[in-house]
Simulated assay, not measured.
Amino acid sequence: MGFLFLLRDLKNNRKDRALVLLSLVFLSSALSFIIALPPIWKQIDAALGVPSIAVPLAQSCVMLVLVFQTSVVAYWAFPPAEARRRSKIFGIAGAAAIAGLFATFSQIDPDDFSHFLVRGTFYKAYLGIYIAAYTLAQTYLAVKCWQQARRSVNSWVTASLRIITVGAVITVGQSVIRTADLVADAFGSSADSWLALAWLCGDAGALLTLLGYFLPTLVDRARGVYGWANDHYVYKRLAPLWEALYAATPSIAAVPAESQLRSLVQLRPISFSLYRRITEIRDGMIELRPYLHADVREEAEHRHGTQGLKDPDLAAAVVAEQIRQALASHSQKQAAVELTEYADARVSPETTDEDKHLLLRIARYFTPPPAQVTTPVPS
């Protein structure tokens, strides 16, 4: 899932090395687990004609995960030049570890891998290489992610880095148990009873680490979906107000309004159309200024104020009535004798987002005048 989610970003950010490396983290991790599945394992062994060859292949993918994980953190923590230098070092170390795994594997009885037990010298060397590389990489990951979490100002990124740190520390538990097994074997003993816990540490730690890397992407996607849905919701909520203003002043729409249904069906964003709708509503309100009666504003402010409304809701409710009465006066060509401003002038928004929320409040209180002459709304 992480890899597939990141593929979309890679199309537009292929030069972002950290993003490319993060994608490779997920891809390599997925391959390591897929290769280790018994049916896949057997198919690989049969295809290559080498018993248990899937083991070093899967664990080589784990080595790649470590290389890419540490490289990602390097690009997060250091300037590009230093990050590239460290990434090369991690890559060389990873290649050496993989070469060591295959070199020792070639000297081991394949039956050893079917039980994952410490036996011969070369098997111990194989495990030693794997454990050493894994422990060093996860320790580096835990330390650097913890340091970066303390510097981050984004709460979600901080949480993600903390999760990665916890996952990396837990995975070291697997290394400790496997190392204890190696040491115990040297003294004629065994720590086989702890191997189940070692696998649990490895799997739980890997899961947390991947979740930590995945969380920012997931949050970003969730925000994107929320933003898309919210834009469509706001666009629809502003429709009655916009339609009433457009009916009175068609010139506010330079081009026909986009079909919201088509955008919904095609899952397209409507942010630009929403921006246009907000601008056109404001343009329509400007066109109605000659029809704003001072007494309408005074009466509406007194009535809504006695009902307990406070700004910005008070201003929104008054503006809604001002627009309603201005539309009625416009249809009858009755310009105001004593002009006034819209009530929302005292809560003037400073950003487009603030203006959007204010217009939503106005739309909530707005009802069109019953006798308004309408102009067909563009599809």
Rank of each mutant, 00 (worst) to 15 (best):
Y226A: 15
Y226W: 13
A229C: 10
D231K: 11
H232T: 08
H232D: 09
Y233M: 11
V234M: 04
V234S: 06
K236Y: 05
K236M: 02
A239V: 00
P240G: 09
E243G: 01
A244G: 11
A244H: 02
L245E: 01
L245P: 00
A248N: 04
T249M: 03
T249G: 02
P250V: 02
I252S: 11
V255A: 13
V255R: 13
P256M: 06
E258Q: 12
S259K: 07
S259A: 14
S259F: 07
S259I: 05
S259M: 05
Q260H: 11
R262L: 13
R262D: 02
S263C: 09
L264D: 03
L264H: 00
V265E: 07
V265W: 08
Q266T: 11
Q266Y: 10
R268N: 01
I270S: 05
F272P: 01
F272S: 14
F272Q: 07
S273Q: 06
S273V: 03
S273R: 00
L274S: 06
R276H: 12
R276N: 15
R277M: 12
I278N: 04
I278G: 03
T279P: 01
I281F: 12
I281T: 06
I281N: 08
R282S: 13
R282D: 13
D283C: 10
D283M: 15
G284L: 11
M285A: 10
E287W: 07
R289N: 05
R289H: 12
A294S: 01
D295Q: 12
D295P: 00
V296G: 03
V296N: 04
R297K: 13
R297A: 14
E299P: 03
E299W: 01
A300Q: 04
E301K: 11
H302T: 07
R303I: 13
R303W: 11
Q307H: 14
L309I: 10
K310H: 10
K310Q: 07
D313H: 10
A315H: 00
A317P: 09
V318W: 07
E321V: 04
E321Y: 00
E321W: 09
E321A: 01
E321C: 10
I323R: 05
I323W: 08
I323G: 06
R324W: 02
Q325L: 06
A326W: 05
L327M: 10
A328E: 15
A328F: 08
A328G: 12
H330F: 15
S331C: 15
S331V: 03
S331P: 00
K333R: 15
A336V: 08
A336F: 10
V337S: 13
T340K: 12
T340R: 10
T340G: 14
A343I: 05
A343N: 11
